[in-house]
């Protein structure tokens, strides 16, 4: 199975950087997410996860390093979390880490809200390199 790599962009609409590794099961989503075509973008990510879960079925470590996302992205991020939760419920091994700037209390609350809605264990990990600039 192929890795999924999308180089993010910064400027007008911001596209996050994606690196999903089929060999190690480590999936990274970082940067800022406020896209023009949010659904199309996240559908690719969800389709990759579906294929990985069906064909590779190894453990997944999902690392979020998003410094900002808009509300239409929140909805799509939730679909990722729900998919991870479903995989875990069906016997898959899932670790979800969410790295964030310690001073960003809004982000801390977003993570907590995602945890409550999805019932997925999300490790909130402070990382000062994610200070927004």
């Amino acid at each position: 199975m192929q890795n999924l790599e999308i180089k993010g962009s910064h400027g007008d609409y911001d596209v996050p950087t994606v690196f999903f590794n089929a060999e190690t099961g480590v999936c990274e989503l970082k940067g800022e997410s406020y896209l023009e075509k949010t659904a199309e973008f996240y559908d690719r990510l969800l389709a990759w996860l579906d294929e990985y879960i069906e064909t590779v079925s190894n453990p997944i470590t999902f690392n979020f390093r998003l410094t900002y996302f808009n509300t239409s992205s929140s909805k799509r991020i939730l679909y990722i979390l729900l998919k991870l939760k479903e995989y875990e419920d069906n016997g898959g091994e899932v670790t979800t880490n969410w790295y964030y700037d310690e001073d960003d209390t809004d982000m801390e609350e977003e993570i907590e809200d995602f945890r409550i809605i999805s019932n997925l264990e999300i490790n909130a990990l402070p990382d000062s390199s994610l200070r927004w600039e």
Binding site: T38, A39, T71, S72, K75
Partner: peptide, 8 residues
């Protein structure tokens, strides 16, 4: 799922 926005 089909709607673009999240209504939030």
């Amino acid at each position: 799922y089909e709607r673009a926005g999240a209504d939030i």
